[in-house]
Design a protein around this nucleic acid. Structure first.
Lengths: 72, 72
DNA sequence: TAATCTATATATAACGA
DNA sequence: TTCGTTATATATAGATT
């Protein structure tokens, strides 16, 4: 989806990989949200970047699961 | 992304909602996989349809988490 | 770097069989 | 209902700023 077609394999160039991560992560979170709203689905999504940063999206029931796990 | 633009709100028609769920769920799983490969990210995704069916994608570390939770 | 830009690839809404 | 098909909307790769 861009000026060129890319193969689905680890991007070797660090800068390119980080830029792609930022763009695609944003797109994935958006589509996750849309699916949950459009189709009334319950979704939990957690992403860890290769540098260890965490990003997440979750609908209500998944929030309870996280709270449960954290209070074990 | 289609013949018409749609609003992001719960789809009222059951058939349309199920068709959309099937298509978008598939797209979301694909993009999740691509992000994990391209950017070497660890991702856990769980989707429950409104009828209770579960779908998931997870990279290795998340599989360990599931096993841990299931053996608690 | 970190934002924009934009040409192209991809996803998908509405149909049709 | 469950597949294709295809016109259109959207995401994004690479370039530019």
């Amino acid at each position: 989806m861009g000026r060129g077609k890319i193969e689905i394999k680890r991007i070797q160039n660090t800068t390119t990989r980080q830029v792609t991560f930022s763009k695609r992560r944003s797109g994935l979170l958006k589509k996750t949200h849309e699916l949950s709203i459009l189709c009334d689905a319950q979704i939990g999504l957690i992403i860890f970047s290769s540098t260890g940063k965490m990003y997440q999206y979750c609908t209500e029931p998944f929030r309870y699961i996280y709270i449960y796990i954290n209070t074990l």
